[in-house]
């Protein structure tokens, strides 16, 4: 399918109460004003358990810059790779990926390369929404490559996952602020996870030029340029929650208030973050 540049009709959003509420509490609706021209594209992946025990993919649709490919799976698990078909997201783009593992299905989604947020022609923000659902007894592994926030870009990333009581979710999110030696762009990233309709985790990080002051300081990122999180939701953690511990100078493992564990790592570069998350993933899935 080819990318279609569409004019988005202005959508009214409530006026922010102050500069802070605008920056700290971004609305996920596109901003009002002159109609931005950007790409709107949605990729859809649905994994379903087949009678044979295998997982099939009744829906596997890419669009525009979001191409999806089925890759070789294993042990009843279907695997899909997101393939960067063009440079995106650029300012003004609105990309959405929806991935669902239906009851008893097992799905693993990876990507073939890092995603680079780039500025658009008119400085408009871009939006990248990821919506994940995990059914009864299903497992979804969402393991994309890093998101790199390039100079001048302005990206809002929203990741939402809805997991049933006995579903398994493994979710990795890594952000690198600026390419090598580059000033980062503006990046706002919200992650909301529900288990059986209850909010397990709701957090948002805002960084880069124009973010609320202090983002680069000793309480938030301390001048470090790479951040990663690994969330593991497993029913086993209800009975046996993980013990909190340190995984490096700026990395920790903590149980959440539910059947889940979260690793948070901050480091000088993306490689150092990945090393921590890889080691943690291995021990958490044991």
């Amino acid at each position: 399918m080819t990318a279609e540049a569409v004019a988005v009709a202005p959508v009214g959003v409530p006026a922010p109460a102050s500069a802070l509420s605008e920056s700290a509490l971004p609305e996920s609706a596109p901003p009002a004003g002159p109609a931005p021209t950007g790409i709107r594209a949605t990729a859809r992946i649905t994994a379903r358990r087949h009678g044979s025990g295998a997982t099939v993919l009744p829906v596997l649709e890419g669009e525009g810059p979001l191409a999806v490919r089925r890759i070789r799976g294993a042990d009843g698990e279907a695997r899909v790779a997101l393939v960067g078909a063009m440079s995106a997201p650029l300012g003004g783009d609105r990309l959405t990926v929806r991935a669902a593992a239906e009851d008893e299905a097992r799905l693993r989604v990876t990507s073939t390369a890092a995603t680079i947020a780039l500025p658009g022609q008119r400085g408009e923000p871009a939006y990248y929404d990821v919506e994940l659902t995990v059914g009864q007894g299903a497992a979804l592994h969402w393991l994309p490559e890093q998101l790199i926030s390039a100079r001048g870009s302005d990206l809002h990333v929203t990741t939402r996952a809805d997991v049933t009581e006995d579903g398994v979710l493994v979710l990795r999110e890594e952000q690198v602020l600026g390419r090598s030696g580059e000033t980062p762009g503006r990046l706002t990233s919200r992650m909301t996870i529900w288990i059986a309709g209850r909010t397990l985790l709701d957090q948002e990080l805002s960084c880069g030029p124009g973010a609320p002051a202090g983002w680069d300081g000793p309480a938030v990122l301390g001048g470090l340029r790479a951040l990663g999180q690994l969330l593991v939701v497993r029913p086993e953690f209800t009975e046996a929650p993980v013990q909190p511990c340190m995984l490096g100078e700026h990395a920790s493992l903590t149980p959440l208030a539910g059947p889940a564990a979260l690793v948070t790592a901050v480091a000088r570069d993306g490689l150092a973050v990945r090393r921590v998350l890889d080691t943690a993933l291995e021990s958490l899935m044991r």
């Binding site: 919200r190 948002e204 000793p218 990122l221 909190p244 948070t264 901050v266």
Partner: peptide, 16 residues
Amino acid sequence: DALPRASAPLLEIGAE
């Protein structure tokens, strides 16, 4: 869900 949810990674890691 409309309430603020701003996070500070180093405060969270440092607390552990």
